[in-house]
Design a protein around this nucleic acid. Structure first.
Length: 580
RNA sequence: GGACCUGUGGUGCAGCUCGGAGUGCACGCCGCCCUGUCAAGGCGGAGGUCGCGGGUUCAAAUCCCGUCAGGUCCGCCA
């Protein structure tokens, strides 16, 4: 047992693996000095840290090994003297004695403390990310991520999927997310782009007969960053032929549940499912957080012919906030401001008290209206009922946003509640030319029952597109793809894309489809987000080794940076004056 | 493009409302003491353009304007 598969030419075992079973043996470990505790000329304790944990090493006071020095220590594994066992340390029963310490590398004092006791400013951490990564939390997060990747691969392999790599240097296909552009040296004035996703490539793989494809794929989007969005992110990308939406959801569910079990030790139950329309109606969002209730209620009928101006709208949505009557006026003003920032005209609130409703609007309500509000979600004294009146989708969205603000637990709390959201609309919104826009992407198959509406009432067309949502985070989305030229042509037409334009943009895909395209469907979900939730992190930067800041810079490398005049020349680039 | 929060020795904070000497706390660092510590302890020490620029004032870390950096969000993310 003195040797294991961790043994190398420089060490016998990992620090964390040294325990009572090795007592009496002479072993060599390597690592960083996490802490030095000095007790005079003839005694000092070194905590030596490697990825597995910490081991106490007893040395002579003359050994000059300071914080973060890299050392190689050979010593005898010994029981600690009675009364000096450290129960908080996994290796706390033992220590290395009679040690030879070899300094492999000296180290300056680190710019911040590497223990997890204090939060360090993220700017400082990112500037010295290589040090930050030594911290236990980052070690855990990135190893968790590796375990999730391993488990996803295993699940896809087990389901007969074949891992295929697709190009990073791809052809521009404007539409959708802004692309990162790569100038061509050999073709002056022409460009590659980095893929926003392997979408088209994987559909071509279907035409190519790889009827079950997956890839852990890096995707690049030149859009503004957020807590859950980096320029580059990683997806489990999946596509399969001769399948339905349910088949794909089954494949992905299995992979996600396997990964969840691997990461958390508990296999979640089945993944729930609701339609997009239900999600909007009950939760006011297409990515509902099922960890808490506070559902939206529809009072439109009650207020259909109301005298109250604030409620004169197509839809009145109400939500009970348990215990919310305690909220101060300034808190309620904050919430009102939040709703207004999103576009709401206002926010009505009604404290439920023993004497009835307490609200600036209360005296304008009819008895029926007051009763309806007091009855929302079985409101109790001490609750508050929030109401938004607007057109249907807006009323849902505004109140849904407040629901999240008021009810959403921290990422690290509560159960993991997965939900499939299905039947997304095929189109959403209207672009500058008056055409509807693709909600997912233009190759999304319409719902079979709604095909006739494409020309007559496009906004009503449901699609065979579906999202996977976990605790209010959109993990990913997918769809059944259009493999028939006639339907594709109708969808392009509805989108205002002429055949000519379609040929220009996606000609190579449409051309390929002429040679026998199998019906196919797929999905892709964000591994960064999944791992962040498993790790209880609010921010995906915490599960990425070298992330960018919100302004897209890398504080460690200084990227983005100038390139040399020679590079500029070879790439045939010229710069417009700044500000033009 | 916009809103809000933050910026004080290497690190984490307090000081800012109500202007009055770079004042304080904790950690780290350096030196000395200490043979059983493990958030070791004791004594001593070094370390600061208060993000940057301007303004108000007799006087600015503190008030005002601008700007930079980091963060959260809106827009954006087919």
């Amino acid at each position: 047992m003195s040797k294991n598969h961790e043994a190398t030419s420089l060490r016998d075992c990992l620090c964390g693996s040294v325990g009572p079973t090795l007592v009496g043996q002479r072993v060599t470990v390597c690592g960083w000095v996490a802490k030095r505790r000095e007790h005079g000329e003839h005694l000092a304790f070194l905590d030596v840290r490697d990825r597995s944990g910490i081991l106490q090493v007893v040395v002579d006071g003359s050994v000059d090994a300071r914080s973060e020095y890299v050392v190689r220590v050979t010593g005898v594994v010994s029981h600690r003297p009675e009364g000096t066992v450290n129960e908080r340390l996994a290796t706390g029963e033992v220590e290395l004695t009679e040690c030879d310490v070899e300094i492999l590398s000296a180290a300056e004092a680190p710019p911040f403390q590497l223990d997890d006791r204090v939060e360090i400013d993220e700017q400082v951490r990112l500037r010295h990310r290589f040090l930050d990564l030594r911290r236990e939390k980052m070690q855990y997060n990135l190893r968790l991520r590796a375990a999730v990747n391993r488990s996803l691969r295993a699940a896809m392999d087990a389901q007969g999927f074949c891992e295929v790599e697709t190009p990073l240097l791809w052809a521009p296909t404007p539409e959708g997310a802004r692309e990162f552009v790569v100038p061509s040296r050999l073709h002056p004035g022409e460009f590659y782009v980095l893929p926003q996703s392997p979408q088209i490539a994987k559909q071509l793989l279907m035409v190519g007969g790889f009827d079950r494809y997956y890839q852990i794929a890096r995707c690049m989007r030149d859009e503004d960053l957020r807590a859950d969005r980096q320029f580059e992110f990683t997806q489990l990308d999946v596509e399969a032929s001769f399948v339905t939406q349910d088949d794909v959801m089954g494949f992905v569910s299995r992979a996600v549940l396997d990964a969840a079990e691997e990461a958390t030790g508990v296999r979640p139950g089945t993944i729930e499912s609701m339609t997009w329309a239900q999600a909007l109606d009950l939760y006011g969002t297409d990515k509902p957080d099922l960890r808490f209730a506070m559902l939206l209620h529809d009072l439109s009928n009650v207020f259909a012919s109301t005298e109250v101006k604030a409620f004169a709208a197509a839809t009145v949505k109400a939500m009970r906030v348990p215990g919310g009557a305690a909220m101060t006026r300034s808190r309620l003003d904050q919430l009102t401001d939040q709703a207004k920032e999103l576009g709401a005209k206002g926010l009505a609130w009604f404290r439920v008290t023993a004497e009835g409703l307490d609200s600036p609007l209360a005296r304008f309500l009819s008895e029926t209206e007051a009763a309806a509000i007091a009855g929302v979600d079985d409101a109790q004294v001490g609750d508050i009922v929030l109401c938004v009146a607007d057109e249907y989708a807006n009323a849902c969205k505004f109140l849904g946003a407040l629901r999240v603000t008021l009810g959403s637990p921290p990422v690290s709390e509560g159960p993991h509640r997965y939900v499939w959201v299905t039947e997304f609309p095929l189109f959403e919104g209207i672009d500058e030319d008056g055409n509807p826009q693709a909600a997912h992407h233009p190759f999304t198959m319409p719902h079979p029952d709604d095909l006739d509406l494409i020309e007559t009432d496009p906004v009503k067309v449901r699609s065979q597109a579906y999202d996977l949502v976990l605790n209010g985070w959109e993990l990913g989305s997918g769809s059944v793809r259009i493999h028939r030229a006639d339907i594709q042509s109708r969808v392009f037409k509805a989108l205002g894309i002429t055949d000519e334009e379609a040929q220009g943009r996606f000609g190579f895909l449409l051309g390929a489809f002429r040679f026998g395209a199998p019906p196919h469907a797929g999905f892709a979900f964000g591994i960064d987000r999944l791992v962040a939730i498993f790790a209880g992190e609010e921010n995906i930067r915490e599960v990425i080794a070298f992330p960018k800041t919100q302004s897209g810079t890398d504080l460690m490398t200084g990227a983005p940076k100038d390139i040399t005049a020679r590079q500029i020349r070879e790439l045939h680039l010229k710069f417009a004056p700044k500000g033009s």
